[in-house]
Design a protein around this nucleic acid. Structure first.
Lengths: 208, 208
DNA sequence: GGTTACATGTAACTAGTTACATGATTAG
DNA sequence: CTAATCATGTAACTAGTTACATGTAACC
């Protein structure tokens, strides 16, 4: 799970651990905040497995390789911002202490594998959200399959919850009832959200 | 977390492990499904700590003590159902193999402690849901406090998510955007659900 | 008499956490 | 010069999981 997130972020651009954590925490929302205590060992494991490599740790090279590669923003704008940052007073942070990691070819393969193995992802909420965040790398039919499987699971959950709810409503206190009701509503909202995603998927050639 | 759930269920009625698992899985909804591999060791721990005791494991006693204690359903109806079940063909399942556990006084205290320690419960979704399921045992002001703290947390989350979302909307692909949008909507729905609970709490003497 | 559901338990593993230890860089 | 932030890492712990092992009782 964490491996997938790391590889996915590194696929877009080279990053060091600290920055990686920031992205996980606030770029990917409330899901998947990680502690350093699991992030660094995970990076070490991935490096040992040859999925990522430290592209700069010491001051060996000025490190001008691929400063920022925004997938959709204006490249010129980013480059300008980068120059501006350098010029003012900042010596571009010599990075003597940072270990910047890059995805290897092997890592790219691992990413594909992790992303495409359907196991778990469907019934594990966190795993599904994570996959969704990277599903742009999935071939369209796989993506649609992911959405539909997830939808089927939620519909199933909803049916079970409802039958259960009906059968024992009387013996539940109001707080538990309210909790279960709210859970049901949330699941319904999740389903119609997926419906919108599925419709979008079926209609349009996939977006950026 | 699991301990709290076990103690809370045993507070209502004596149960054996297998039944406990069923209740955790479908009475408390999609949250807190547990595997036997963690349930039984947890029961053993609680027994070792003196929080629960095996009230019948062998055929030593007929076990007619407190068959079912519905907190709000009709007691007469339940008793009738129990008798009916016994009478048809079922010899009340001799229970030679089941270990039925009961809450001890020490266990009741532990339950209170676990339920009242605010730590975690507010920022851990699962823990909060679990506490909500048992919050009828909380004194009214504590309960209100729990709801309000949770609400504050969600409002904070929402603010962070929104500012983050605004600041980097352009560099996100549509799937990630949709994911974050949906997350935001879910959080909003959670907040207004809490608002309803809080209003109910402030207005009425608490229900059953 | 065999399949299904009930029932309890253990061992090895997974995926994280917190707390600690250490040190470099930047801003005021 | 000192506090905050950046940055990396380790060790001990938490809270569960899956897979395995074992056996009973009910149903047809």
């Amino acid at each position: 799970m964490l491996e997938l997130a790391i590889l996915g972020l590194l696929k877009e651009q080279e990053l060091h651990g600290y920055e990686l954590k920031k992205r996980l925490t606030d770029a990917l929302g409330a899901f998947s905040s990680v502690s350093f205590g699991s992030l660094y060992p995970a990076l070490a494991r991935l490096e040992a497995a040859g999925a990522v490599r430290a592209v700069s740790a010491g001051d060996s090279e000025p490190v001008l390789s691929s400063p920022v590669v925004p997938m959709t923003g204006s490249i010129a704008g980013e480059a300008a911002a980068f120059r501006a940052r350098r010029s003012t007073t900042r010596p571009a942070r010599s990075s003597r202490t940072r270990k910047v990691y890059a995805l290897t070819e092997r890592g790219g393969q691992l990413f594909e594998e992790l992303l495409e193995t359907d196991s778990a992802s469907v019934d594990d909420d966190r795993a599904f959200n994570l996959k969704l965040a990277f599903c742009r790398y999935l071939p369209p039919e796989r993506r649609l399959g992911l959405f539909e499987q997830r939808r089927a699971l939620l519909v199933d959950r909803l049916a079970k919850a409802r039958s259960n709810h009906r059968s024992r409503k009387e013996r539940m206190d109001l707080y538990t009832q309210s909790l279960l009701d709210h859970g049901t509503e949330t699941t319904e909202a999740d389903i119609s959200w997926l419906d919108r995603l599925i419709a979008l998927e079926r209609k349009g050639g996939q977006p950026s």
